[in-house]
Nucleic acid binder design. Structure first.
Lengths: 187, 187, 187, 187
DNA sequence: TATGAATGAGTATTCATTCAT
DNA sequence: CATGAATGAATACTCATTCAT
């Protein structure tokens, strides 16, 4: 689990962090077609330096997504400790959509996260939220974590498509109530 | 009502149709970054010919989307005549997702359809489906056509993300039941 | 001298004339980089028709220049009959510059007039003007027709370069007085 | 006066200089329609390198013209120190024409030099030549620097048009004597 | 014969990536 | 290690010219 990576020099670490941040903001705001050189420039380093940290534009991209996923997972974990089971999941969905609003589809690209363990960590955390909501009888018993992740992706797409907050609101409500335990239906 | 456009020469019409078809398939399968020249090559024409019909890559793209939307609208109209109100809408959603499965986000780009009337026609037809479903008491009274279109976009995104048919199935069910009239909830 | 060209059909002749006119105006106003298709369009014919009359853009271009040269030669001949020897030449120079003001260097391209006899005709007429001015003792005896044609080209270039009419005026005066018989100098 | 531009890296400076030189020679010899890639190839660099130094073909072109103007201005300044007033101006004109002989109109494009200060510097130097010639009573008092610059442009056009050195010689003599103080005439 | 559709080589420019300084 | 210069394949689009209708 713990690979002995020789610790990065302080300035190198700072550069890496700065690049990640700048790249995230830039891609999120202007789409992924922004040239690598531009990212480097905004981060105040030469392109060579960027390539030292991320061997490929794709790699940079995946690093960002991974970072985002981790941040979101963290939020999920917090919610899972502070909110009631069903509420936790529903609020998490809302949060993801909200944050994704400035994302230019960055996180829909959650599809290929590469071989880092991020996806697994994210799924683990989401699984917990889902499981607890199920046990509390708040959501349908047949949906899987994968289903919920898929719903997340869809919700982000929707919110990106329709900028209208009222639509987003209603659509989220549709999803939530569709997800809810459908006792009425069951008998 | 009938603008007298002088009919396109037979060969020109053939080329235009072929380009549209090839471009749709190519973009759908490989994404929109496929070079214009490649589309032309596959259609068996020179790039100049492509540019005679579509003055811009963007224009070609919009023409495709417009074409797709019109095809889908047609299907919607058929369903609207052959199926019961609620059923018609639900089956339409299913159909769209199904067809969009090979679409690489082509139709999510429904966002900007340019100044052709396609978007309007599509919305009109969808509006009919929605209205009738509402009147039959099959879906929530508060959702708008826009909401449903947004849901369509989201569903396509989901299905593109999760190739697993079972997930798609369940997710669609979630959406459908969320959309359904929630009488139980209301009192 | 008289090649038996079968007389062009009336409409063909009209097309040719129209093309020549439109092409002249267009090239003069917008430079020679205007596409051939545009010329055809403005003349109200298809590009194919243009190519029937002028096998090459270059050919069209030369035809225009030839036409212009003939027109100018005609003016020269008129002047030669209505004005005093020296005056005729000087006024001709002025006229050429004036007309060339809207020419975008079209006539500087007088350089290559191709194998039509136009150049010869122009030179013949100019030779007459020059000869008579010399005999009247109005211009230096050592300048040749070629020299004067060269001066014409230069004057057009100048006038195209400096849009300022006062400069044009003075510059023309410099040329005229430089051309004048320099008796003072000679002794 | 001295802006602290960080000095260009040695190799970059070399490349820039080489590009300028190659581009000048190529454009001068073959006209400005030579493809940018060809210039790069002849300079032994990739097209990207060219574009790093000159963001546009137009920019490259202007850089060349600016460079040429500066070189000519330098020669003018030298003449102005080594030759008698009138002589300096007349020899400068001759020099310009001579050098422009291989210029394919490159310098006639002196018209738009862009927003660098070159034009101003050139005019300043030319103004000096003109002023001193006037004060020495060697040229007409009414001509302006602009007039003389215009004459320069015209002379280059002439010399480009007529390759015959004798014509060039005579034509230059016409211009010179037309420019000379015409005291004889005046009384 | 006129038309205008098709051709396809050609061009400026961009940008991910490598490498000399 | 950082820098930023160099690379060069790739790409959208143009236009003189040919040819099917």
């Amino acid at each position: 689990m713990f690979v002995a990576e020789k610790p990065m020099r302080a300035d190198a670490a700072r550069n890496r962090a700065r690049l990640l941040e700048v790249a995230y903001e830039t891609f999120a705001a202007e789409g992924i077609s922004v040239p690598v050189d531009e990212i480097a420039r905004r981060a105040g380093v030469g392109p060579g330096t960027l390539y030292r940290h991320f061997p490929t534009k794709e790699a940079l991209f995946q690093a960002i997504v991974a970072h985002r996923l981790d941040q979101m997972a963290e939020q999920g974990r917090e919610l899972s400790q502070t909110a009631a089971p069903g509420e936790a999941l529903f609020r998490f969905i809302g949060r993801v959509v909200e944050e994704g609003s400035s994302d230019q589809g960055l996180v829909e690209a959650m599809a290929d996260t590469g071989p880092t363990g991020v996806e697994e960590r994210f799924i683990a955390m989401l699984g917990e939220l889902v499981e607890r909501a199920k046990q509390a009888g708040q959501i349908r018993a047949d949906v899987t974590v994968r289903d919920v992740k898929t719903l997340l992706v869809g919700c982000q797409a929707m919110q990106r498509y329709s900028k209208d907050p009222e639509t987003t609101e209603r659509v989220l409500d549709v999803v939530r109530s569709g997800l809810a335990a459908t006792s009425a239906r069951d008998h």
